[in-house]
């Protein structure tokens, strides 16, 4: 049984690894880009699940960590002239520290404090990043914006382009594959460890967990730190891949929504559910975003009603299948 599972995993990795080799012949490399983004979203979804699923602390603001990872990378590459991939751990670290700064006060308490704060953080951070250059001007940190923009405000930042664009994309593809494997491995490790046991106990009944000696706030903050770090690294990968970022886009609410949606669709709090959810979400999003249909003589682009579909999906899953796709599969198999 266990062997078969390992075989599936190895097969999956092998399949992903050969995609760049065949992508060119199929559709001029589009498959490679799509796969890159799927893998990135799988990592983000799995990482979100560490705080949202295992610890049960829903975050509506994980897009912030992703955006910070992207910006840290862009600023690093522009300012130092060193290869951008060196900034990956730094991007993760910045996201982690940022998460800690407001995660600590909100996670210390029981109740919806953390979840609500996450709704504000994305907006607040976007506002800061959009206005940071303006704020820094004439301040003691003036030198940061003297000869080039720091965050670029509304016009964004362009990363230095690599010598060989194709080779760089290929390199990033494999880094992303490795990163995804790492993220899933970390999630699996947490799931089976003492750490994961503490998180699940706190999730199910914080007070009971505390009377048994679990220091709930410490483990919750730790879970947020791990999660934020990984999402920050994913953001760093994104910046390197697209080479242009602006605050309006990378801090937009839609990434945060996606990170809530994917694990919920797949199966919140499980190991493979979030990965499955991300795959379903990203592929469906790619296939359907340009689809349109007629409703009462009115043409409706699916892209215009995507929030409604996401919302409906959340409501239906919560009401009828809180276990998500994974829960549904399990139930079908039992019958």
């Amino acid at each position: 049984m266990k062997n078969r599972k390992n075989l599936y995993v190895l097969g999956g990795i092998a399949l992903l690894a050969i995609i760049p080799l065949i992508a060119k012949t199929i559709d001029n490399g589009y498959l490679q880009t799509l796969t890159f983004f799927v893998m990135m979203f799988v990592s983000m979804s799995v990482a979100w699940n560490i705080i949202g699923g295992y610890a049960g602390q829903i975050s509506f603001g994980h897009g912030t960590f992703w955006g910070l990872g992207a910006f840290t990378t862009a600023i690093f590459a522009i300012r130092t002239g060193l290869p951008a991939w060196l900034a990956m751990p730094i991007g993760g670290l910045v996201a982690m520290l940022y998460g800690m700064s407001w995660g600590y006060p909100t996670l210390r308490l029981r109740g919806p404090y953390f979840a609500i704060a996450t709704i504000g953080i994305g907006e607040a951070t976007r506002l800061i990043m959009l206005n940071l250059d303006q704020l820094l001007k004439n301040s003691p940190l003036d030198w940061l914006v003297k000869d080039k923009p720091f965050t670029g405000g509304a016009s964004g930042l362009i990363l230095p382009s690599p010598n060989d664009f194709q080779a760089n994309q290929l390199l990033l593809f494999y880094i992303c594959l490795g990163f995804m494997i790492l993220t899933i491995a970390i999630s699996a490790w947490i799931n089976n460890s003492r750490f994961g046991l503490a998180l699940r106990a706190v999730n199910m009944d914080q007070e009971a967990a505390e009377t048994l000696g679990v220091s709930a706030s410490r483990y919750k903050v730790l879970a947020l730190m791990v999660s934020a770090f990984l999402v920050g690294v994913a953001g760093s990968l994104y910046a390197q891949y697209v080479l242009f970022i602006d605050a309006r886009e990378v801090f937009s609410f839609s990434n945060s929504i996606a990170m809530v949606l994917m694990p919920t669709v797949g199966g919140i709090g499980t190991l493979w559910g979030p990965a499955l959810g991300a795959l379903v979400f990203k592929v469906a999003d790619d296939r359907l975003s340009s689809a349109r249909f007629m409703l009462g003589g009115m043409q409706i682009n699916l892209g215009d009603v995507n929030l409604m579909l996401y919302g409906l999906l959340l409501v239906l899953i919560i009401l009828f299948e809180p276990g998500g796709v994974l829960g549904l599969l399990k139930r079908l198999r039992k019958k």
Partner: peptide
Amino acid sequence: MPPIASLLFFFGIWLIMQNF
């Protein structure tokens, strides 16, 4: 249901309202 469900549920309703 556990609190996590109500958060997700109301979030979903909110998204629907926004899109509307």
